[in-house]
Design a binder for these strands. Structure first.
Lengths: 342, 342
DNA sequence: TTGTAGGCGTTATCAA
DNA sequence: TTGATAACGCCTACAA
């Protein structure tokens, strides 16, 4: 009985051990009904004895296709993306696809490496929240035969399927809420300005502001270098440093993590929330509701985002008449204590 | 020029298009120095023109082994595990292995499905935070040839490599800190009691308590059904319902998420933190420091945990003299405002 | 119902 | 330097 080079038993070994032909073993594996009960029994015993494990590479080589899709995540440390991943996972499970998750950690070269390997693995398709949605790499991948769906970003041209949330509207919702609560001097906290999300949310905020007839100067931008807790704290320090007459009475943060940093810094500087400073975040991650002053936030349908992306990918991978489409979800304001009327 | 069935060009197609033999194409791919500059040039052009992508299945079938490892994560929604995953990823990257992440979401059947597929994919090895560390499945997987390392759990027998943190010590540290701060009536919040982590942390807490000569009854267990934000809130309600004379002056929570829920509920019930109730969490996730009352917590070296696990796996996969070992990290108390002396 | 043969795409060996 | 060939493990016609 020769063992496969890998040290594992192959169908051939099983066949030899069970005293049947290789084809029969394959039948037991793939069309058991064609095999007599007795032979099947014998083959299955042999498999158990030998610790037989099907070789997916060989199977896939033969089949030409795999049953897995992949999500290349932008930042595994941000709960928003892990929630999106769970949405994808759920949708994939429904159609019996396995999801592999890779993390680029915002690094273009890791993103590239993952995409290259996934392509070589002939995954059914990849979902990706790219570092740069305009990157030509995405086009190359697709042109080489791997379906690609962009998640939580959009491309300027409409050549890709994408799933995103209307950030301009989200920014608008946040500001309308604050204006509604009587705020007439508001800070926008976020950056870098080049980030599509930041740009769009600010844009929406501005529109709501000017449409309400308020002076542009009273919507103050507090740019940050990134969207994390530390940046929020830093912005908090800047706010605390302002003379209280000039200080905005509210802040709209480009995401929740930043808002949590701001909240923490404000409180420890003796600024009361929401009495002295109202705060609106963005994403509505689980921790937003659990903050000591529960955070008003713009909710993005994270799970649905993932599920919709998975559906688009599946369609692109299997439907020859597939047409690319850009799905845009509508965000929703969730009001909590951090903007309570005072 | 025949195209591969998959619709993609194969080495054969490239060879035909470049007017060379298949072996030459392979050489361009794997030992370019053996090929003359002119031919190489021609082959590379053909590859570009045809959009050639190497087929990893075939390569792996031939090679018998892959360059990827996988981490089967217990709960993608818990930042603790995503941090562990990042530690693994970093270590894997150093040795040029690709990490695939799968999520069991605490469901045994999904864990099993992932492990089966990974095995069939012939990954170099699997890291797993299992739903049940005693599950015989793990033994089966390994006996069939896939190295397995248990992450953040331990098995009673020492037959597996594992990496964990000393939870008994962690519980002890938390309570010593509280006792030190003068607390003489303390609640332990966490559950279900069957969970190894919960059991060990409580055990450590009890030891510190009795060694300090305090009456066992004054370490009150507040069992929860799970370790999430909602459970923490619920425990908070129970605490708020106690007569303030009988109410513990401090709570030790089995993890940070639960502690955050408790913190929120306490504050909204008018219980001041830390004046009326001191709180200690566990894990020291990023949001612990960013809570409005920054949370004292028992820090687990998440990144190192992942890195050590990856190292063990690599050793098991490549070193014939490998011996299983159980690495146990030492936790560390991080004191913050939630237990400030008052 | 069971067995035989050929091929999936890649790599490595060996010969030219 | 280049080319022909066999093999990795599996699957599926097709033949017995």
């Amino acid at each position: 009985m020769t063992m496969a080079r890998s040290g594992r038993a192959s169908v051939k070994d099983v066949a030899a051990s069970a005293g049947v032909s290789l084809g029969t073993v394959s039948n037991v594996l793939n069309r058991p009904e064609r095999v007599s009960a007795a032979t099947r029994e014998r083959v299955e015993t042999a498999m158990r004895d030998l610790g037989f494990v099907r070789n997916e590479s060989a199977r896939q080589l033969r089949a030409g296709t795999s049953r897995t899709v992949a999500y290349v995540m932008l930042d595994a440390g941000n709960p928003f993306f892990t929630d999106v991943a769970q949405g994808i996972e759920h949708a994939a499970e429904q159609v019996d696809l396995t999801l592999m998750i890779c993390n680029s950690g915002q690094r273009p070269e890791r993103e590239r490496a993952h995409l290259e390997l996934l392509q070589e693995q002939r995954v059914q398709g990849v979902l990706v929240t790219p570092v740069d949605p305009e990157s030509p790499l995405l086009e190359v991948i697709r042109s080489r035969g791997t379906p690609v769906v962009i998640v939580d970003r959009t491309r300027r041209d409409e050549s890709f399927c994408s799933v995103a949330v209307d950030d301009v509207l989200g920014g608008r919702l946040a500001l309308e809420h604050l204006i509604d609560r009587g705020h007439r001097r508001v800070a926008f906290v976020g950056g870098p300005a080049g980030l599509g999300q930041v740009r769009d949310r600010l844009e929406g905020a501005r529109r709501a502001w000017t449409e309400a007839g308020l002076p542009a100067d009273d919507l103050v931008a507090l740019p940050t270098t990134s969207l994390d807790v530390a940046s929020g704290r830093e912005a908090g320090e800047r706010l605390a440093g302002m003379a209280s007459a000039r200080r905005p009475t509210a802040a709209f943060c480009a995401n929740d993590i930043t808002a949590l940093g701001l909240l923490q810094q404000a409180i420890s500087s003796g600024i009361r929330v929401p009495e002295d400073l109202a705060i609106v975040g963005y994403d509505d991650i689980e921790f937003a509701a659990a903050a000591a002053v529960p955070l008003t936030s713009v909710r993005q349908p994270r799970g649905e985002l993932g599920a919709a992306a998975a559906d688009l990918l599946l369609d692109e991978a299997t439907n020859p008449q597939h047409r690319h489409q850009q799905v845009v979800f509508v965000p929703e304001l969730v009001a909590r204590a951090s903007t309570r009327a005072v």
